[in-house]
Amino acid sequence: MVNEIAEEDHQESVTIAKDEIPHAASSEDDEIESGYCFDNFLKNDLIKLHESSSDYSIIRKGFFSGMGETLSKSIKIVAIHKTSYSGFSAKAQAENFQILKKAVAEKCGGDANVKYAWYGGSRDEICEILTQGFSWYTRTTENQNRYRNSVCFSAAKFSFGSVLSSKVDETGLNHLLLCRVILGKAEVVTAGDCNGRFHPSSPEFDSGVDNLSDPRRYIIWSTYMNSHILPGFIISFEAPFLRDGGTIKTRSPWLRFTTLLSMLSRRLSPSEMASLEKHYKDFQEKKITKPQLIERIKEIAGRQLSPTIFSPYTNKKLQGCSGGK
């Protein structure tokens, strides 16, 4: 079913031959049985892929290609499941996705700009997405409901961003949902642009990206979130550095700024990275203090990233005036 994960941007993600809806039946390489921790997946008619299958190998390669060499060594993929589209609602959703894809293609001159993209969340949220679709509400860090105006995805070759958004379940696993998304004609959308918006800026556009030439984030507005998104696979993995409250642990008590830049470069746009580097230069020249630098990094990177990156270093020194740390 899955042919390739290409390197080029216009073919950056998993490609389905002839753009068909995946067949409900499993192949000889697929395992119908799964472990206890995946009972919720089986209840949603998911099929566990065998490690020897081509689908498994290609998705695994795409996942690790967006992680970087260092982090890839500390992650273990436990299972990959695929949607069967055997249920009435799932089948209707897949068929509706194809109809909308053709409509957007006609609107955009023949290309619907369909991409594969990662979404990170909790296991329960992902299961709910499979059965009910994306919710109009999302849970905040204060455990309160907040009205959702959009859904943010990581591009296929930047899986690290969604890994940081995933949640550890009671079995110690994290989960990512690999979806197909209809981008159509995209416009640049910054973090501030999302406030109070639930749709594109004009009928000319269909979705948002952080950068037109090399997007790392895709924005599907809430008005389209259950029509322009089609879940396809779930990848479950062990990531020890994300445990204990979602903090990244390292052997060193020092946070190298070059390491931080490498981590954030998979999540932020080029303009945001340039802003980060400017603030760091100001810190080196003693124009701003260490707390000010950290706060500005948090503002640029997003509050959802700050616990992951900064928690181990809250009481440590952030070296910056020498040694490139």
Rank of each mutant, 00 (worst) to 15 (best):
Q98I: 01
G232W: 04
P203D: 01
R266A: 06
I5N: 08
V14W: 13
I77T: 02
T83F: 04
K317W: 06
S150T: 01
F64D: 02
Q11I: 10
S89N: 13
G133M: 02
S165E: 13
I75C: 10
E125C: 02
F310N: 10
F38R: 02
I32A: 07
G245Q: 13
L49R: 14
T250I: 06
L255W: 06
L230S: 03
M263G: 05
M225Q: 09
K107L: 03
H81P: 11
A155S: 15
G302K: 04
T131C: 09
N195P: 00
R303A: 05
L164K: 04
L42K: 12
I16E: 13
Y147I: 01
P240K: 03
K167I: 08
D111R: 12
Q304A: 08
P253K: 05
E95Y: 14
P253Y: 03
G66T: 01
C108V: 02
T140R: 04
L100T: 09
F233S: 06
C37E: 13
W221Q: 00
E8Q: 14
F233K: 05
V78S: 14
P253T: 03
V188G: 07
S306K: 08
L176Y: 14
Y85V: 01
R146G: 01
I59P: 05
N3W: 12
V151G: 03
R139I: 00
S202N: 02
T247H: 15
I297P: 04
S166H: 12
I99L: 13
I288F: 13
E7K: 15
Q98E: 15
I297Q: 05
K115F: 13
S122R: 06
I220D: 04
A24S: 10
S34T: 00
G110P: 09
D193C: 00
K317A: 02
D169G: 08
E299Y: 07
K76H: 06
S207A: 01
C321T: 13
S262K: 12
T131N: 12
N195E: 00
K167H: 12
D214W: 15
E285Q: 15
T289N: 12
S26N: 08
E106A: 06
S275W: 08
L49F: 13
L71E: 09
R197M: 04
P312K: 11
S269T: 12
G66C: 09
D244E: 15
E295S: 13
C152S: 05
I80V: 09
Y147Q: 05
S162Y: 08
L276S: 10
M263L: 15
L260A: 04
S227L: 11
